[in-house]
Computed example of a mutant assay.
Amino acid sequence: MRLTSDAFSDGGEIPRECGYKNGNKEPALAISGIPNETESLALIMDDPDAMGAVGKVWVHWVAWNIIASHADMDDIFSNSRCNLGMTDFGEVGYGGPAPPDKRHTYVFKLYALDSELDLPDKSTKAEVEKAMEGHILEQATLTGTYAP
Rank of each mutant, 00 (worst) to 15 (best):
M1I: 06
M1K: 11
L3G: 01
S5G: 07
S5K: 11
S5T: 14
E13L: 06
I14F: 06
E17N: 12
G19D: 06
K21A: 14
K21E: 14
G23E: 11
N24C: 14
K25I: 14
E26K: 12
P27Q: 05
S32L: 09
P35W: 03
P35Y: 06
P35V: 02
N36Q: 07
L43I: 09
D46A: 05
D47P: 04
D47F: 05
A50S: 15
A53Q: 13
A53F: 03
K56F: 11
H60I: 14
W61K: 14
W61M: 15
V62F: 02
V62L: 02
N65C: 08
I67H: 10
S69A: 11
A71Y: 07
A71P: 03
D72V: 15
D74P: 00
I76G: 00
I76A: 02
N79A: 13
N79V: 00
C82G: 05
D88E: 05
G90A: 07
G90H: 04
G93L: 10
G95W: 01
G95L: 06
G96D: 07
P97N: 14
R103D: 08
F108I: 00
Y111A: 12
D121V: 05
D121M: 10
K122A: 09
K122H: 08
K125S: 01
K125H: 15
K125A: 10
V128K: 10
E129K: 11
E133D: 08
E133R: 02
L142Q: 10
T143V: 15
G144T: 06
G144D: 04
